[in-house]
Deep mutational scan, measured.
Amino acid sequence: EPSQADLDALLSAVRDNRLSIEQAVTLLTPSSGGGSGGGSMDAKEILTRFKDGGLDRAAAQALLAGRTPA
């Protein structure tokens, strides 16, 4: 399960175009075949909204942490 520091680094990389959204989703869902963790939004949607400015960093982190299976 990614830590808050991992999520923060991942969000920074996506925002700075050092990591594509697809690459980030793969890192967030290493063994689930890329499927959502059952959250209301999947990781790709969360990351896309964050990059487009629709979500701030704290909200994106909380959503990603919340949808990651324990």
Results as ranks from 00 to 15, higher is better:
residue 13 A to D: 07
residue 20 S to W: 03
residue 54 G to W: 09
residue 50 F to W: 14
residue 21 I to R: 00
residue 15 R to Y: 14
residue 6 D to V: 12
residue 56 D to L: 07
residue 20 S to R: 03
residue 49 R to E: 07
residue 15 R to N: 06
residue 48 T to W: 04
residue 46 I to E: 01
residue 2 P to R: 03
residue 53 G to Q: 04
residue 63 L to V: 03
residue 7 L to F: 04
residue 51 K to C: 04
residue 42 D to F: 11
residue 52 D to F: 06
residue 3 S to K: 05
residue 55 L to M: 09
residue 32 S to Q: 14
residue 35 G to T: 13
residue 64 L to F: 03
residue 43 A to C: 11
residue 13 A to M: 12
residue 49 R to H: 07
residue 11 L to C: 02
residue 70 A to N: 09
residue 11 L to W: 04
residue 41 M to P: 10
residue 16 D to N: 05
residue 44 K to Q: 10
residue 37 G to M: 13
residue 14 V to Q: 00
residue 30 P to L: 11
residue 35 G to Q: 14
residue 34 G to F: 07
residue 56 D to R: 03
residue 8 D to R: 04
residue 46 I to D: 01
residue 25 V to Y: 05
residue 14 V to W: 02
residue 25 V to D: 02
residue 28 L to N: 01
residue 44 K to L: 09
residue 43 A to P: 10
residue 13 A to I: 02
residue 51 K to W: 04
residue 13 A to H: 05
residue 36 S to W: 13
residue 23 Q to R: 05
residue 29 T to L: 09
residue 24 A to Y: 02
residue 27 L to Q: 05
residue 1 E to P: 10
residue 70 A to I: 09
residue 32 S to G: 09
residue 27 L to I: 12
residue 33 G to E: 08
residue 55 L to H: 02
residue 11 L to Y: 02
residue 28 L to T: 02
residue 18 R to I: 12
residue 13 A to G: 05
residue 14 V to A: 01
residue 9 A to K: 09
residue 51 K to P: 01
residue 69 P to E: 12
residue 40 S to I: 11
residue 7 L to C: 04
residue 7 L to P: 02
residue 5 A to F: 15
residue 37 G to W: 10
residue 39 G to W: 12
residue 48 T to E: 11
residue 52 D to K: 06
residue 45 E to I: 05
residue 25 V to S: 04
residue 37 G to V: 11
residue 11 L to A: 00
residue 7 L to S: 02
residue 56 D to E: 10
residue 59 A to E: 10
residue 31 S to R: 03
residue 17 N to V: 03
residue 44 K to C: 06
residue 40 S to K: 04
residue 5 A to D: 15
residue 58 A to F: 10
residue 61 Q to H: 13
residue 3 S to E: 10
residue 64 L to S: 01
residue 57 R to E: 08
residue 40 S to N: 12
residue 69 P to W: 03
residue 70 A to Q: 09
residue 69 P to L: 13
residue 40 S to R: 05
residue 49 R to M: 12
residue 41 M to H: 06
